[in-house]
């Protein structure tokens, strides 16, 4: 599977990664090589094999609907790069 530059750009945009042209070219080559290697799994016949999303046999792990204390608002915002009126602040969202 050889990736095109457009595909690399599309993936980077989905993942919101700002990449330099050099990086894009590098990832195009590297990801292509890795995917080519990964393509070996296509040889396996897995028609009748169920997927394993998790190895655990667990089911119905739930908690009771009980309220526990929240963080003090200072702790919530302590790591925030930009704060206004006890809220996180970002540039206005256009589109």
């Amino acid at each position: 599977m050889k990736l095109s530059l457009e595909q690399v750009e599309h993936i980077a945009e989905l993942a919101k990664l700002g990449l330099t042209d050099e990086e894009k070219e590098g990832y195009r080559a590297q990801l292509s090589a890795i995917l080519e290697y990964a393509d070996m799994i296509q040889q396996l016949d897995t028609e009748a094999i169920p997927p394993t999303a998790t190895v655990l046999p667990l089911r119905n792990v739930m908690r009771d609907d009980e309220v526990t204390p929240s963080l003090p608002v200072e702790d919530v915002l302590a790591n925030a790069p930009d704060v206004e009126d006890n809220c996180f602040r970002v540039k206005a969202i256009l589109g």
């Binding site: 799994i41 396996l44 897995t46 094999i49 169920p50 394993t52 999303a53 190895v55």
Partner: peptide, 10 residues
């Protein structure tokens, strides 16, 4: 597909 391979490995 990888998840199915995971089943085989397990």
């Amino acid at each position: 597909k990888a998840q199915k391979v995971r089943t085989l490995i397990k």
